[in-house]
């Protein structure tokens, strides 16, 4: 069932280390009018701590969707993806890899780790806003997601 059907904002976890990028995604979501609540993890370790409820910032809601950057300090996005997708308790959370890299090796590797999709960050802001709308339209308004 989609979160919108439940009449609550969607829970998005953004895993991204660069504050300028975080803010840009926040603004794109705002411009795209996606009703959401966002949790930001600044590296791979923080992301996994939040997902396992061991975060020092307290209990974080289980995300409806993870937006995952690949190049992160401490534990990179590939490791985070591998951990999520190998854990039966977490693997049903859709993970969208959102990164600057358009390297074939990265795309191949992420799909082999069961990424739900791989998206290159558009350089153009209008395209980025559009992308955020498409993600919202597909994952939250079209796709059926499992009940938690």
């Amino acid at each position: 069932m989609s979160p919108y059907a439940l009449k609550r904002p969607v829970e998005i976890m953004l895993v991204e280390d660069n504050p300028a990028d975080v803010r840009l995604t926040v603004e794109a979501l705002k411009e795209g009018q996606v009703r959401h609540r966002m949790t930001v993890a600044r590296d791979g370790i923080e992301a996994l701590e939040m997902l396992y409820g061991r975060s020092s910032i307290g209990v974080v809601p289980r995300p409806d969707l993870v937006l995952l950057d690949l190049n992160l300090p401490r534990k990179d996005g590939r490791e985070v993806l591998a951990t999520i997708k190998s854990d039966p308790a977490l693997r049903s959370i859709p993970v969208i890899v959102l990164t600057t890299s358009s390297a074939e090796e990265d795309i191949k590797h992420c799909y082999s780790l069961h990424a739900n999709s791989y998206v290159s960050k558009p350089v153009d802001m209008d395209q980025f806003i559009n992308l955020v709308k498409i993600i919202d339209l597909f994952w939250f308004q079209s796709a059926q997601l499992p009940m938690l």
Partner: peptide, 19 residues
């Protein structure tokens, strides 16, 4: 490849400014 990253930030914010 690495130049694209900061450029995307500059481009994003100037476009946002314009919007």
């Amino acid at each position: 490849h690495d130049l694209q990253e900061p450029l995307r930030v500059v481009s994003g914010y100037t476009q946002l400014l314009k919007r």
